[in-house]
Design a protein around this nucleic acid. Sequence first.
DNA 1: TGTAGAAATGAATACGCATTCATTTTTTCA
DNA 2: TGAAAAAATGAATGCGTATTCATTTCTACA
Lengths: 334, 334
Amino acid sequence: MEKKNYTSQDVAEVAGVSQSTVSRVFAGNTNVSEKKRKKILAAAEKLGYKPNAHARSLITRKTMMIGIVMRNIRNPFYSAVLEIFHNRLSALGYHLIFINSENEEIQESEVTQLLEYNIEGVIITDALLSSSASEKFKRYGIVVVLFNRYTEHLESSAVFCDNYLAAKQIATYLVETGHQSFAFVSGPSDTSTTIDRLKGFKEVLKERGIKNFMIEPGNYTFESGFKAAQELITRNKNIDCIFCGNDIIALGVMDAIRTIGLRIPEDVSVVGFDNIRMSEWPSYSLTTWEQPLEEMVDTTVELLVNEIGDTTAKPQIVMMKGHLVVRNTVRSRK
Amino acid sequence: MEKKNYTSQDVAEVAGVSQSTVSRVFAGNTNVSEKKRKKILAAAEKLGYKPNAHARSLITRKTMMIGIVMRNIRNPFYSAVLEIFHNRLSALGYHLIFINSENEEIQESEVTQLLEYNIEGVIITDALLSSSASEKFKRYGIVVVLFNRYTEHLESSAVFCDNYLAAKQIATYLVETGHQSFAFVSGPSDTSTTIDRLKGFKEVLKERGIKNFMIEPGNYTFESGFKAAQELITRNKNIDCIFCGNDIIALGVMDAIRTIGLRIPEDVSVVGFDNIRMSEWPSYSLTTWEQPLEEMVDTTVELLVNEIGDTTAKPQIVMMKGHLVVRNTVRSRK
DNA sequence: TGTAGAAATGAATACGCATTCATTTTTTCA
DNA sequence: TGAAAAAATGAATGCGTATTCATTTCTACA
């Protein structure tokens, strides 16, 4: 069985028309008579013809490909992000090239390869974007949109939750429910999410004159949360609430606290961030901050598509709010 | 700032050589003098030249693109799968086009689009592959490898865990630890994983003359596990062990059992399947079957690359074993 | 029925590259 | 030093499509 890749020329010959007309049919051009259109479609069907996307993109300069760069796909928050991005973008006819940057920064070679494929845009979620990589994208006219993070010195659009405000509200909530001794388990200290969440949290504590505050570094994983909590409790038995950089950390923190023999929320309150699905599992029932995921993705896609279509469009920064989801890991201590 | 996409011709002019020679340099051809190579690389650097992957693939008939089709990226098992596949394939220079098929089957349009991009191969994980879709891939000479599933009537390579044997061993383990009343929470009944796991489990129970066996349908999600366990316990208070189609179901089952007020493993034993990371979280500490994930991925990649390189290669079915990971959700009842 | 205008069609071309083939340059070795 | 072999180079070509431009066919209306 010979597997030939038939071309529009082959179809043209079978249908008895010119290659141009075949091309018109498959490009959705309307200027083709119904009679020939049918003939062409029949011939194409018979041969099993399909247009060649690469040849097409060579001329149209459109590839309909979007790169999506993630750092930690194992974090359920990002699994969800990927799923939703795929939904939205595939509905628009775009294809997703998936990149997982294990290392701190996107690999130079990955950037180069994405460039060679002439992707039309790239979504950077969480991965640290070295400015050289970003510049490279920009230099080649590839639209960059940052998701869930931003960097001040880059001229890229960005969509993220107002982490600063969220952290302030969480801190306020914890203060007003009578907590005395605070801890924060952070993510990597060089990410904007961590920086802003910490800043907001700290600020409220300072305003309220609270001095009992410990910070323990984590890296947005369960294990790091687990270790951080052990460390915190060991160092200070009086901690009565822990704000976690994200939900996965919070789950680790909770398991550590329980392993030690303390109760949540009776002994220690825990608050997470993201509202991943697991946070509502009965074993955890975590009070957390919900990021408006779908809206964030929708906005990101909107910006992306808009900038792809209009190269003069200015980069935009969109900050969304989200809200506290109260479950059972915070107890009033008044 | 003009953003021109320079071509090999532009580079050639700057370097004072022919386009052919530029092409040779970037295609890794060795027949270029060191002197010109340097000149060309300098010119390319100066212009910011990068080869156009589409133009290249038009000639070489290689796209270095692999499709990966998943059904449920939110299942942590598949997040891990995706991560590992990305690692391996990007190391080999392949790019991953990510497809999440929410619906039961891969959408016809998705298949068509993948075909138009001339992907060299496609990995189907868990997603249901209609025979028409599969035939379509085969017809166009695209290598198909099934991961963690197989279908008898299709001539595709497949890599999966010996679910039948695994389920038998799990059943044996539960029988020999003195359990009396069995339940199985399944995945979708049309997947090979579910069918084989159920079959192996059933067979052992039959051999051992055990009649107390209930089956509750699930769909490989936490929620379905939760509901299934509620249903099971309501219907039969004497159930003393539940074998779950996968780990996520098992976690749901555990939370339901605990919510009801029963203890694990004192009242009910639970066994999962996959050994996802969460199964070792202290809150669950789930006894489960470990699928040899990395090896499975490695084998899949091997088959894929092999078949891509050698079109005469016969499809292969590789079954791997895995092993029981004993934690704290099964108690001997002797 | 005749004609202006619209619609449909095909020939030719270009997209950016790899590759073949013929030619030139360099190297090797007697 | 010279001839043969090897290496390097460039001109030309084609991959499969969209698009432009010129030409032909069709439609509408007087």
